[in-house]
Amino acid sequence: MSKEFTLDLAQDRAALKITKLTNNGKTRLKLLQMGITPGTKIEVLRHAPLADSLVICVRGSKLALRRNEAKEISVVEAE
């Protein structure tokens, strides 16, 4: 089992697996509804200019997240 870290620290093109969400309330619900559920495999596609948002691919869809939203998503390297 590789080390857990938060999504904002991920590199471009990294293949990851979500372990848990640490936020709550509306933000958490929105992330879950968009398919960011624990156990899901995601890929970081790129960091957008100024590195404030990152683009990920989850369940075949592309999403843009802010860095502070990504901070609350824990991930591990996918095998």
């Binding site: 933000t27 929105k30 869809s61 592309k62 999403l63 843009a64 997240l65 802010r66 502070n68």
Partner: peptide, 10 residues
């Protein structure tokens, strides 16, 4: 409301 949540579908 949730201007803090930005997450957008591309």
């Amino acid at each position: 409301e949730d201007s803090a949540v930005f997450m957008t579908e591309i």
